[in-house]
Design a protein around this nucleic acid. Sequence first.
DNA 1: TATATAAGTTAGACTTACCTAACAAATATA
DNA 2: TATATTTGTTAGGTAAGTCTAACTTATATA
Lengths: 226, 226
Amino acid sequence: MSLTYTEENYLKAILALTVEAGKADAGTNEIAAQLNVKPATTNDMLKKLAEKKLIAYKRYGKSSLSPAGKKIAIDIVRKHRLWETFLYKKLSFTWDEVHEVAEQLEHIQHAKLIDRLDEFLNYPQYDPHGDVIPTAAGVMKMSVKKTLDKELTGHKCTMVGVKNNTAAFLQYVDKVGLSINHNLKLISHQAYDDSFEIEVKGKRVNVSRKFAENIVIICAACSKKS
Amino acid sequence: MSLTYTEENYLKAILALTVEAGKADAGTNEIAAQLNVKPATTNDMLKKLAEKKLIAYKRYGKSSLSPAGKKIAIDIVRKHRLWETFLYKKLSFTWDEVHEVAEQLEHIQHAKLIDRLDEFLNYPQYDPHGDVIPTAAGVMKMSVKKTLDKELTGHKCTMVGVKNNTAAFLQYVDKVGLSINHNLKLISHQAYDDSFEIEVKGKRVNVSRKFAENIVIICAACSKKS
DNA sequence: TATATAAGTTAGACTTACCTAACAAATATA
DNA sequence: TATATTTGTTAGGTAAGTCTAACTTATATA
């Protein structure tokens, strides 16, 4: 009953376009674009996946994952993100290199492999991009990524990226004491000069709105399930 | 110019049947049997690989790897054995479980991946089966596997397996102080009772020929290149 | 609401990797 | 050396996943 590499990729694409994008279903063209294939190709596969009861599909309509299809798709995402974490933490890959290798590794089939890897990595909750790693039971919290200026006062969060990649900005980020995967807390917002007070490594710092708008964070407290 | 999963497997099979088996070339049926496909299928692929200059092939003749084909095949073996080592040492897989997963992992394509893995594993020389791991430069020593009774006096070697898997024998092996991947040295052979004196963890023990014939070892000193 | 545009489908074709069945060449043996 | 057996090849077919081109349905807009 195991699926081909390709079938898995279609399920993953549909997950990304529906559940992960907060939408109910996805169109054929949309799925085709996600996978870089032509709509005609996608159409064939959708019929095949519907046959296998992995998706809900109606002629000239949109598609969505069945419970069984969703379970499989989440499992692939789990594999992908655990492998990314492995590459990042253990093999010193950079943040932007991990995805492409994980695209291949996520299709490795073995009953014990992924749970062993999870254990080896000490059950990480987030991958190097700050996305939540689904549990072995198939529960996937949706991490709410947003920029720091959108965070709620008092919330602890983790920096997972930047919007601006200039050396000047990155040096400033460094000076403030922030870096990828570090925790911070939003203490308050000063209406007076529209600045934000944050706590980084126990120290309080003031940063401008312009700065905050370029810091991407995830907030566990703001996450939602499924 | 990268090869398909299947093409890689054919090159690996030919390597196993020629270089690794100490033979000059391999027949079509032989290769088909190694890969569990029909000779007709193999024939098609041999023509295709010959076209790509990866093997030497003549109609109704036997096949062998070209230098380019051999380089690729050795590279796959390197990947296979490094992944096996990873699974064994880092993810607590057993000796006999690693092969099947490595069959999949060996086809992951990425410029840096395998050298990073090699570094992470601290440049291991042997995989969990005692087979030599080819270097990044594509040099593969052939580990000469043999039973302990065939070893030369004075040589240090590593136990890599047993021929007899009964509990009784394994317990005896354990009692002698031997286990998988442990080193030993053949001190002498006693003609009197046809027994062997070996050194294990600094202690000298006497074992019978029957015992020695069931212990599989590799000997670095007996290895040869290519 | 009529029609233009966007979205989705179908038909027919190609490639890869596999198969079976029939045939040809090489080798072993009577 | 003639023949039987083994080994290797060819021809034709299948399934998966892709494509293009032509067609149909749904949606947007004038």
